[in-house]
Design a protein around this nucleic acid. Structure first.
Lengths: 205, 205, 205, 205
DNA sequence: GATGAATGAGATTTCATTCAT
DNA sequence: CATGAATGAAATCTCATTCAT
């Protein structure tokens, strides 16, 4: 490996790392103040630079959310696809998907919050059609899992699967809005209890 | 009753009705575009008037959300208080509160959506301290119901009540974001299925 | 004519008149400082309002030049078309077109200056394709007139018509950059002398 | 001559050459996009470097145009002065000045374009007073030539010399905006035809 | 009650310029 | 010499709000 090669690698890597840092700062602010209510200046403050300086790294405020969301969704689908491809039964697929979702919340909390709060509005813009696509695919994935589970006799047949789907979806993702990595329960513990609640209900038997 | 009195009554009533119409339009727009992303002009368009004209009726954009949210919350607490004051058991109180919440979603859908999406940000302003108050009271109410239910042996003791509380809260209110009054299921039917899911789980037994 | 009708007429007319006033101010500033060197604030100052207020009337700085140029070009082509449609001979067509051009300079001086200085740059943007179209049509018009004149024996055959065309085009329009309506010579007098110079040359005979 | 001296000479020469290259690139961009509309980054792109790097060579964007224009004007006046000092008659002086001007366009096309488009605006700044000076001197030179020619009986006496001056000035320089060195006609051929047109007119006799 | 024009604060974005490496 | 990141001033544009009519 020539020094030249190492140089260009390290600068490209440094660049990517800087972008990631800035996006992390931006995501935090977007998540806590709301995307359209946060000013570019606030993002820059959080990143320790001046407003205009962000434009050296990003085209626009919009391109920041774009990168935040698309990075998250790409990773999320990779994780889901691993689960779906591993040949588990209905019940285990269910567990694994919920657990994976909580791991996503753990890793990408601000991105998930932004996704929850803004994707409906953003999706109207042509730049963000992938949000609607992701949502559609998400729905199809869950309905497939649930329908298979009903046929298998794993899930109850007396409930509307569309309703169950929404129930799970909301239930899982909204956790991002209150989850703190530094709380008493780890992501996996929370996932575990959620799974129990959803599968068995909260009634004592 | 003098004609004068009748006049002022009818104009006062007409005035209130006009306000309500305008607020309904505003709520719809705030809910669909997001509060800080919607312009006063958009609200005015939806109300069939020009931007400046809204200021005859309202002090500010902020006072519109304020009135939207406080009207909704006042009504919601009246309903909850009726339930809490009627001496039901844990299980029935649970059912009734969830059912009441779905009725709220049915009646105040846009307000509920705004509440979901914006209350965290708005609550920072002194004008909206009642939002945080409401949230606190809401939490206390549910924890009381759940704790009593655990003591009664109605609810499982092996789950974190804080987690159950959040589970229910999110589960119920997020429904506002997809609920349409004109869908196939009525509010009460949806509430019924939700209650079954939450109480008994989705596994077949 | 009902008062109603007169009202709506007068407000629509007032609106159009205000736009025209503002565009006149803008054109003056664009012409003297250059389009991209003049700030919206300078235009607003010239119009006696604040920067933001211009956006009540116009979408953008660009839409101002757009309207300035397209208004001018529309009128110019109407005038040229009248000339071309009136069945004059080569020499008289030539005279009439040059005279009409000077009249345009008289009426639309700032617009003509802007056209001269900025159209090459602006034409790159898709919004301003009509500028290139106009230029093409202009070239075809003059070449037709000149070619016919050469065939008629009115114009010399020993000169490149393409060169004559450019000679005339530049010669005529650049006058906008120094012409003042309040100078000693009227537009028609200047046109007269230009025509003599171009037709007969500056040598004494 | 010491090696040291030779070194510094060669690096000074290299330095000057690099400056010239960069200025050539800058002039091209300023000419095609307009001075104030082109960004330093665009100049740098054209020069194959990054924006900041230009500041190793030049103080500012302004000093670039400054050097471009002053180099051109210095050379132009040297050429004109040679003509004026060579004792030619009115007609020959006329011819020689026009021919020299077309040679300038050939050599300094982008600089001439910039001069045409921007000098009026730039001249306002104290740094560019030499532009106004040059223009004044140019006017005096031509009026002297024309007035002498009228007295000599070479030029027509029935035309306003001020008008002829402008006619010639515009006619000649605007050619820079369309002239391409690689076109079918050489600079001297174009100059020849222009001279004929201006002197004898375009009418056949 | 509503309109239409304007205000003015502030948001996003641009860009010439600087400077450590 | 050149890079890449940052600065900071200023530009374009947005929008809640005001107000005369």
């Amino acid at each position: 490996m020539s020094p030249r090669r190492r140089d260009s690698e390290s600068t490209a890597a440094a660049r990517a790392e800087r972008r990631a840092e800035l996006l992390a700062a931006a995501a935090e602010v977007f998540a806590s103040r709301g995307y359209s209510a946060t000013t570019v200046r606030e993002v820059a403050d959080a990143a320790g630079m001046l407003g205009g300086s962000l434009y050296y790294h990003f085209d626009s405020k919009e391109s920041m959310v774009d990168e935040i969301l698309s990075t998250f969704l790409t990773d999320m689908w990779a994780a889901y696809d691993r689960v779906l491809g591993s040949g588990l039964g209905s019940r285990e697929t269910f567990r694994a998907l919920v657990a994976e979702s909580f791991r996503m919340i753990d890793t990408y909390r601000p991105a998930v919050v932004i996704y929850q709060n803004e994707s409906k509005h953003l999706a109207q813009s042509p730049r963000f059609t992938y949000l609607a696509d992701s949502q559609r695919r998400f729905r199809e994935m869950w309905l497939a899992v649930l329908d298979r589970g009903v046929l298998d006799g794993v899930f109850r047949a007396d409930l509307d699967t569309g309703l169950i789907y929404r129930f799970i979806r909301d239930t899982v993702w909204v956790a991002a809005s209150w989850y703190r990595g530094d709380g008493p329960l780890s992501a996996d513990e929370i996932a575990g209890q959620y799974i129990v609640m959803v599968l068995e209900g909260i009634l004592s038997t």
